[in-house]
Design a binder for these strands. Structure first.
Length: 291
DNA sequence: GAGTCGTGGGA
DNA sequence: TTCCCAAGACT
């Protein structure tokens, strides 16, 4: 089996099975791609779609977002989760206005220098918005590579050098095929080669998947850490931000106290939110999203 | 490098 | 019901 055959299999499958997502359309701006990538960090597509549409209508350019208070971004973020992403998106838009003539930078170094942009997001924007030939490695891609090539059910907890090297070696030579390969492998991981209950019968790589050919051996790596939720600071922070987000005017300390009874934890979280820039304390002992 | 950081839906 | 996890970034 050649790598070229692998490319053809994925590209043919993608041409037929791809979802029609607005940020993939040819008329979508780099800014639209950028916003989608930040929103999609750890958040499912179906939940991002309506919020993305709203943001694009309201803030069609980086300058539009940079021109409003950061708290407006947090409010419009809704319930996507990890609201610091909204803050960083606003900061990134500001940086684009100040350093890049109001445009999304088109190279990896400048992209990754933006707030909230790491290795993955920089590569994704470079590849999908500007057609640059660079490996895009997210959790979906890592899983497809782990199964189809390495022959294991799940990739390591964090990205390894071997995985990066593998992704680079699999990238097609041409820019056009590289772009389709990146989005195609990602789509395959999202729709078919899923974390739980993979739909191997629908997979274009079924006949050559190393994991399937090995008899689908069970995962035997280190146990992945499950994230606690009930009673954690994250839950408390979420409630406080939700309270401010859903209030049209600043809220009193008494209102904040009602969302969590443990005073020590509540105050710690409130202080943390202020330090993060997600909450703004006012002189009259009320709180609001940053103005 | 391990921990932290939201939210909601499906298995 | 409980658990897992969904296009990560940052410290």
């Amino acid at each position: 089996m050649s790598v070229s055959d692998l490319h053809d299999a994925v590209l043919d499958w993608y041409a037929e099975a791809q979802r029609d997502l607005p940020w993939r359309r040819p008329d979508c701006s780099p800014w639209g791609v950028f916003v989608s990538e930040v929103m999609l960090q750890q958040t499912p597509v179906v939940r991002v779609l309506p919020v993305w549409e709203e943001w694009m209508a309201r803030w069609p350019t980086p300058a539009d977002l940079a021109g409003v208070a950061s708290g407006e971004a947090v409010r419009a973020w809704g319930r996507l989760g990890y609201p610091r992403r909204a803050l960083r998106l606003h900061a990134a838009a500001t940086a684009m206005v100040e350093r890049h003539d109001g445009e999304v930078p088109s190279n990896l170094v400048d992209l990754q220098a933006l707030p909230g942009v790491g290795t993955y997001t920089a590569a994704a924007v470079a590849a999908f918005a500007f057609g640059i030939r660079v490996p895009v490695v997210d959790t979906n891609v890592r899983r497809v590579h782990a199964r189809a090539v390495t022959g294991v059910e799940h990739p390591a907890p964090s990205l390894t050098r071997a995985e990066s090297d593998l992704a680079a070696s699999l990238l097609p030579d041409s820019e056009s095929e590289a772009r389709l390969w990146n989005v195609g492998v990602m789509e395959l991981g999202a729709l078919v080669c899923t974390a739980r209950g993979p739909r191997c019968d629908d997979c274009p790589l079924l006949g050559r998947c190393a994991w399937v050919l090995a008899g689908r051996p069970a995962y035997d790596g280190p146990p992945r850490r499950g994230q606690k939720w009930a009673g954690t600071d994250r839950q408390v922070r979420g409630r406080i931000v939700q309270l401010l987000r859903e209030s049209d005017e600043p809220v009193s300390r008494a209102e904040v106290e009602k969302v969590w009874s443990d005073e020590i934890q509540r105050e710690r979280c409130l202080d943390g939110l202020v330090a993060d820039g997600l909450v703004e304390p006012m002189s009259d002992n009320r709180f609001r999203l940053p103005a």
